[in-house]
Amino acid sequence: MDFTLQVWRQDSPDKEGRFEVYRATNISSDMSFIEMLDSLNIELEQKGDTPVSYECDCLEGICGTCSLMINGRAHGPGACTTTCQLHMRSFQDGETIVIEPFRAKSFPVIKDLIVNRSAFDRIIQAGGFVTVRTGSAPDGNAIPISKIDADLAMDAAQCIGCGACVASCKNSSAMLFTAAKVSHLSYIPQGQPERMERAKKMIEQMDEEGFGACTNQAECEAVCPKGISIKFIARMNRDFIRSSF
């Protein structure tokens, strides 16, 4: 397969960016999107040109390092997938593919397709944990947790922190990311003592980082690689309200 790629190139955060056009030729339909970009980069490097900067690591959809807006959609076409698990069979031979970074004020571009998502780390640092010291834990079976609650906690906990939710939200809201962590810990007994305070602090941090508000359009859920439901946003909102009483 052959493709025309329009790739966002930007030298540094303060320089202006632009689209550059490249050809990707002899691409097998079984190749992943990242493998296609890798082969473009090898070509550029062997010519002495500067390769395109993009991030990926595990290549199995779990580390959350890869990003990219592909034809205007976070992680490209297909439901519940990351860019590293997207295969070229999802595209038409000869197609033009537009590749941009995740865009949001709180995710500034570092170079080309790489953005800074450390705001997410700071939201977790604001309260996305149970305050427990190593060594102070009771036996794992001391507090039973119903299978239903454990499963719901896991549904929320599987967020990979990629930022697709922010990139696809017209308000650049980080509600789905924040709600996933708040909800995960709200379903299990260990998360109860700090529950309301956690929701409050994490939402405050989210606002401070400049993420927008949620207007219930569910664009985030549509692109989430783990299919995390917006019902968790409702759950977090409830905790947030209760935190002020």
């Binding site: 427990v132 834990a137 794992g140 507090i143 454990a150 906690a153 810990l185 299990i188 260990q190």
Partner: peptide, 11 residues
């Protein structure tokens, strides 16, 4: 330790 941190192990 992991249970105390809130790791949602299968139940």
């Amino acid at each position: 330790q992991c249970v105390a941190q809130g790791v949602p192990f299968a139940r």
